[in-house]
Simulated assay, not measured.
Amino acid sequence: MTLLSFGVVERLWRYPVKSTGGERVDRVAVEFRGLAGDRLWAVRDAAGKFGSGKSTRRFRHMPGLLRLGSRYADGRDRPEVLDVDGRPVPDPDAYLRAYLRRDDVMLAREGEISHFDQQPLSVLSTATLDWVRRAVPGVAVDERRFRPNILVRTPAGTPPFVEDTWLGRTVGIGGARIEFVDSSERCAMVNHDQPGLPHSPLVLRAVAAGHDNRLDALARVLVPGEVGVGDPVVPG
């Protein structure tokens, strides 16, 4: 870690199918759209809405998606869907229809309508994640509850919610350069159960009370490039 570094990349996550569990990667290309393949696919219903943890103009709440997983395997462009036990399913569309008990859903690649809620990258610090753990003792918490793309290991003594100080700044990470522009307003999805993380209403309650429901730093990509675990996050 350099003296001017915000920290180093601890873990990288991408979510091939929106609102399902993601996959950890050691290195990944960062494109203007975000991490290569991130949320490139989604579960779409007959009305054209995408499966999510909430319902809005673009998204439809589809309970249980977070208990599933998704990953890219063998260099294929279409991701695998993993069942609740972590096993790839042979026919994702058929499985999703049976699992969700809906006959109008299918796996759909992004078209003209973006699958992203807001900006293409979410970055979270270990300082903030550690604060959440302290705020909800006895509740299993790791970064998967907040679905960041990049978890940054911040130096000892870094205060929680340090991400607030990043907004409006640009940083280099590996071969990429990004600009922090906003933060995420959290919803009940952070409470939902997923493998190893039981449902708990205390998580959102703590974030709402401790930081006005906002957690992470959202970024746009200024210069594409490759990013890897261990890369320093350097201002400039």
Rank of each mutant, 00 (worst) to 15 (best):
C187G: 14
G48N: 06
E143T: 06
F50L: 15
G7N: 06
G174Q: 05
V229L: 06
V229C: 09
L12M: 10
L66G: 14
R76M: 07
K49A: 12
D38H: 09
L12D: 07
D103S: 14
V221N: 14
R87M: 00
V181G: 15
P160R: 00
G175C: 06
L215D: 04
V190L: 07
R71K: 13
I178V: 15
E163L: 03
V105Y: 03
R78V: 11
G21L: 06
P195Q: 04
W41H: 07
A219D: 06
M1P: 13
E23N: 05
V8T: 13
A108S: 13
A127V: 08
D104R: 12
D142S: 11
R33P: 14
G86I: 02
L222D: 10
V81S: 02
R153I: 00
F6K: 11
L82F: 00
P148K: 02
D93W: 03
G174L: 04
L129C: 05
A47M: 12
F6H: 13
I178G: 12
P63T: 08
V28E: 05
R14F: 09
D77P: 14
D103W: 08
R147Q: 02
H211F: 10
R220D: 04
R67P: 06
S184P: 09
D93N: 06
E226T: 14
V203D: 05
A73M: 10
L40F: 12
V229I: 11
H199T: 05
V223S: 07
E31Y: 08
V171R: 03
R102I: 00
V171H: 02
G53K: 08
I173Y: 07
P198G: 00
A135Q: 06
P16H: 03
A47I: 02
L3H: 14
I113F: 11
K18P: 03
D117R: 15
H61K: 06
V84K: 10
S122K: 15
R58H: 09
D193R: 14
V105P: 04
A206I: 06
P120Q: 08
L107E: 07
V89F: 05
V207P: 10
K18T: 01
E23T: 11
G21Q: 04
P160W: 02
A94E: 03
D212W: 10
N213G: 14
